[in-house]
Computed example of a mutant assay.
Amino acid sequence: MSAAQFPLESTAAAAQAEIADEFALFGDWSERYQYLIDLGRKLPDLPESLKTEEHRLLGCQSKVWIAASGDASRLDFRAISDSAIVSGLIYLALRVYSGRPASEILATAPDYISDIGLAKHLSPTRSNGLAALLDFIKTTAAQAQ
C-alpha cells in the first residue's frame, strides 16, 4: 500500500493529529464506528497471492492479512480484513505508519488510539487484534533498521 492512497500528511504525528480532528467531528460512537467502516472500504483489495497463512496476522479474531515491502528508508504496508470495522482499524494504522522510514515508525507511539477514545470502545478481541497489527508494524520496522 502506498502512502498515495492515504491523505498525504508529512509525518506520522501529522497523520495522527488529522485523525483526531476527523473523529472529533462525530458526536457519538455509532457515528465513529460508521466512519471506521467507511474508512475500511477505502483499503484496496489484497491480491489473492498475499492472502496466505504466511501473511496472516495471528492474534486477531477476524481474518487479517498483512504484507510489508521496502527498507529502512521507507516501509510500505498492505493489509485487509474480512471484518468491516477491523478494516477501518487497519486503514488508520496504515495511514499513520505506511510509507514512513523505519526510524519514524519506531519513534511514533500510536497516540491516535487514545486521542479518539478508541481504546475504550473496542472489544477485548479487537483490542488484541489492533495490538497484534501495531506489533507487526513495529517489529517489521525494527528488523528493517
Rank of each mutant, 00 (worst) to 15 (best):
G70E: 03
E22G: 04
R56Q: 07
S83P: 02
C60P: 06
L94T: 02
Q61V: 06
R78L: 04
L134A: 11
L94C: 05
S2G: 15
E54Y: 13
V64I: 12
E53P: 12
L46C: 11
D28H: 07
A107H: 02
A141S: 00
G70Y: 01
A119S: 15
S10Y: 00
T11E: 02
L43H: 05
T108W: 03
Q5S: 11
Y33E: 12
L134K: 15
K51R: 15
I113W: 05
R78V: 05
A20K: 14
G40N: 06
G40A: 06
A13I: 11
T108D: 03
A14I: 01
T139C: 00
A144N: 00
S73L: 03
F26A: 13
I19P: 04
T125H: 10
G88T: 10
A109T: 15
G59A: 02
A144G: 00
M1G: 15
E9G: 06
S2R: 14
V86C: 09
E53R: 13
R95H: 07
E9N: 15
H121I: 03
D135E: 08
W65M: 03
S87D: 12
W29R: 10
G88S: 12
S30C: 10
G129Y: 02
I137A: 12
C60L: 09
D76L: 08
Y33G: 13
S123I: 13
G40R: 07
L46F: 08
A119R: 13
H121K: 14
P7T: 11
Y35M: 01
D21L: 10
L118I: 11
D21C: 08
H55C: 07
D38G: 12
A131Q: 14
L134Y: 04
L130D: 01
A93K: 08
S81R: 12
P44R: 15
S127T: 14
L130A: 06
Y91L: 08
E53A: 15
A17C: 07
R126W: 02
A109Y: 04
A93N: 07
I113D: 04
A109K: 15
G129P: 02
I66K: 09
F77K: 06
A13D: 09
A13Q: 13
R41D: 14
E31N: 07
A79T: 05
L25Y: 07
P124S: 15
L39A: 02
A68K: 13
T140I: 00
T11D: 01
A3S: 13
A119I: 09
S103N: 02
A79E: 01
T52Q: 10
S62W: 06
Q145L: 10
F77I: 05
R56V: 01
N128M: 11
I37A: 13
E9V: 03
Q145D: 02
G129A: 09
D71N: 11
A67V: 12
D76E: 15
K42F: 03
L43K: 09
K138Y: 03
E104N: 07
F26V: 14
D111K: 12
V64G: 04
S114R: 14
S81N: 09
A102K: 00
A132L: 08
E53I: 13
V64C: 05
E31V: 03
P47Q: 14
S69M: 11
S10M: 05
S103R: 00
I19F: 05
K42V: 06
I90R: 12
A84M: 14
I90S: 10
P101D: 00
L25W: 09
L133Q: 06
D28F: 00
R78F: 01
A109L: 08
